[in-house]
């Protein structure tokens, strides 16, 4: 089976991060993201990046290989972004190679953007790697969000592989029909319109069938429901948030007041 082979998905592991209450982890992702927009130097971002990487490997028990294979695309994008900042930001030229001018602002802004992107993405990946989507849904519902809404997110994830299958099937089916127009670009555009149409029509049909099935299974018939696999909040989970807040505070204070180093 082609689906489920990518490494960006939840896998049961006996690790600290897996045991933390899903909602706490969600809050943690937001906290990490907020911190990144307070930093003004690349060093803070770099420190944050290293800490996060250590946390992923040791507390999340995610092998380095998996981290790399999932994030190589986003790291590449980050590097391109950094490169553009290096050469495009206005400021004093500190280095010149032919027509490319590297400025002092670019030297600071480039790495900042690189770390912003990679840390936010890696933090969200940690959430995905260590959290069963069902548990996240349950914890959202317990926090007062109507379970019908919390569940919508979950269902979207559930149907993603089906959509992927559909796209693959349509693509191969189209390939063997050959090409009817001389223009290669025109043909491409036409095919894309068709992908969208076919996948959408079949998607709607599937959605309709799924909605009918949910109705038949009493989904949404009461404002609440029971959970066979419940998730429980433990006060100790908050340590993750406290430590993260402390790290962010120290890094921000260091930048603003210049203490420590």
């Amino acid at each position: 089976m082609a689906e489920g082979q990518h490494s960006l998905r939840y896998i049961e592991r006996d690790a600290v991060m897996h045991r933390i209450y899903p909602l706490v982890k969600l809050a943690w992702v937001f906290m990490v993201a907020a911190g990144l927009f307070l930093y003004k130097t690349p060093l803070s971002g770099a420190i944050n990046f290293v800490i996060l990487l250590l946390l992923t490997v040791f507390l999340g028990k995610i092998p380095l290989r998996e981290i790399l294979s999932s994030s190589k695309f986003i790291l590449g994008l980050g590097l391109i972004l950094m490169f553009f900042h290096l050469i495009a930001d206005p400021g004093n030229v500190v280095y010149q190679l032919g027509p490319l001018k590297v400025t002092d602002t670019g030297l600071i802004q480039g790495p900042i953007f690189f770390f912003r992107l990679s840390v936010v993405v890696l933090a969200s990946f940690v959430l995905i790697w260590t959290t069963d989507t069902r548990d996240l849904m349950v914890s959202l519902a317990k926090a007062g969000i109507p379970y019908r809404f919390a569940f919508a997110v979950f269902l979207a994830l559930r149907f993603l592989p089906l959509v992927q299958q559909e796209v693959d099937a349509v693509r191969s089916a189209h390939a063997i029909r050959g090409r009817a127009s001389k223009s290669s670009l025109g043909h491409r555009i036409k095919l894309w319109q068709r992908y969208m149409f076919t996948v959408l029509v079949n998607g709607l049909r599937k959605a309709e069938a799924a909605a009918a099935a949910l109705e038949c299974r009493a989904f949404g018939s009461s404002p609440t429901r029971t959970y066979v696999k419940d998730v429980h909040f433990h006060a100790v989970d908050l340590v993750l948030l406290i430590v993260t807040a402390a790290i962010i505070t120290v890094l921000v204070l260091r930048e603003r007041t210049g203490f420590l180093f």
Binding site: R134, F151, R158, R217, A218, S222, R225, T226, V228
Partner: peptide, 17 residues
């Protein structure tokens, strides 16, 4: 509606409280 076999069986009765 769910990801795992056992969760799937439990889904209906869960909705019925």
């Amino acid at each position: 509606a769910t990801l795992y076999v056992e969760d799937e069986i439990a889904f209906g009765p869960e909705n019925l409280l």
